[in-house]
Design a protein around this nucleic acid. Structure first.
Lengths: 215, 215
DNA sequence: TAGATTGTTAATCGATTAACAATC
DNA sequence: TAGATTGTTAATCGATTAACAATC
């Protein structure tokens, strides 16, 4: 159903996981599921599942449950995965390469349109049918194609400058793998950070807690 | 100070970010900081900063603030970053390569000891002075060295089998980049997931919200 | 001492869970 | 109809913010 304003970010953060479970259930040929069954699978409470889905207008049926297909389609539409936001990627190290090669951009609302790196040895190399080009061409490309999103797979030291240029080009959405804190510099920008080393540290805390390695 | 039991996960999740800011402040030569200043930098409230630090025993000084050096050391010790948990990595695609080559394991509480892949073309290749070896050797290695942590950079389809073997080898801590849901299979396991595509979908939601692409 | 800033308690806010009437 | 399960309101729980006495 239609999207309410002000869905809490706790709910939003659960949506991709719901979506993955719907893909799995569809693949298994499951057609209907109750909030209770889904909650068990996902280790949530049935209450929470129902509350979550009701943020978007309630598409279950009393006494029956939810249609897996409908849930799939609704969540897809809520997340906007049927969009094609023009996207560029900057930085073709191992990480940039992994991201460019393996993320399903087309199925996640994006269209990867260009890849840049400052290293001339990489220019012309094709990744997924896209030729890596000089980072000098960023402005030209943006003026012509107006991409909405930039993926930053460059080292922290390089982000300040590149971000300034991308911002000047009108890009306001960033998927950022560096530790550079973009949202501090720009107020009207939306940044989704992937801080892999934070995740590693959180695991370290949990290990230390369990193993009893206090100080 | 010493670690209380039952620190809430909201607090834990903020610790790595505090830690990064401490590294930054140290690098800038800043020696003291008040909760108010730090809160401004990090876009938190001063109250929250003080509450967070007080979970671990309060190491500030009234009228003065916090010593950057001390905060750095305390957080490091709370997170257990001075540990050396034996770690193996499985899967040397672009992502595994990026992880193996660029994560600072030694500064984050880990010691990367072995790298495995099933692709024989990669055997013998050195990444960070570690030779990639056949995934068949996992059991041998674990029997000899008893690593605590496994990093899973393999495709979802491969995780079920590998996890079964790793679990049998006694490994209970996993850093998982796949979408395979390990914690559903094993109760006594701690898994830290890095779901990059979830992050991409959340960004997509935010773009769609802002750009007004409502169904 | 006076000023500043913590540590800590109390108040508020938000998210999760429980309960149950509505209804398929 | 009877049984099941939703949608939704109310209760609980937890996290954040505000306030202020303690104290450097």
């Amino acid at each position: 159903m239609s999207r309410k304003e002000n869905i809490s970010s706790s709910v939003i953060k659960r949506l991709p996981r719901y979506y993955r479970f719907m893909l799995e259930l569809k693949a298994q040929g499951v057609e209907r599921i109750s909030s209770k069954e889904l909650a068990n699978m996902m280790r949530l409470t049935a209450s929470q599942v129902r509350q979550d889905f009701n943020c978007f207008g309630g598409f279950g049926q009393q006494g029956y449950g939810y249609s897996v297909n409908q849930l799939h389609d609704e969540i897809e539409s809520i997340l906007g995965l049927d969009s094609k936001y023009g996207t560029i990627l900057i930085g073709v190290g191992n990480l940039g390469r992994a991201v460019a090669a393996h993320m399903s951009f087309e199925e996640r609302g994006y269209s990867l349109e260009a890849i840049f790196d400052q290293n001339s040895k990489l220019w012309g190399e094709k990744i997924r049918d896209i030729q890596v080009q000089s980072a000098e061409h960023i402005e030209d490309f943006c003026n012509k194609h107006h991409p909405k999103v930039a993926i930053l797979c460059i080292p922290k030291e390089a982000v300040g400058d590149i971000a300034k240029r991308l911002y000047a080009c009108g890009i306001r959405y960033y998927w950022n793998f560096s530790h550079y804190d973009l949202s501090v510099d720009y107020d009207d920008v939306i940044v989704e950070n992937v801080h892999m080393s934070d995740s590693l540290m959180i695991l370290c805390y949990q290990i230390s807690e369990k193993e009893g390695n206090l100080d």
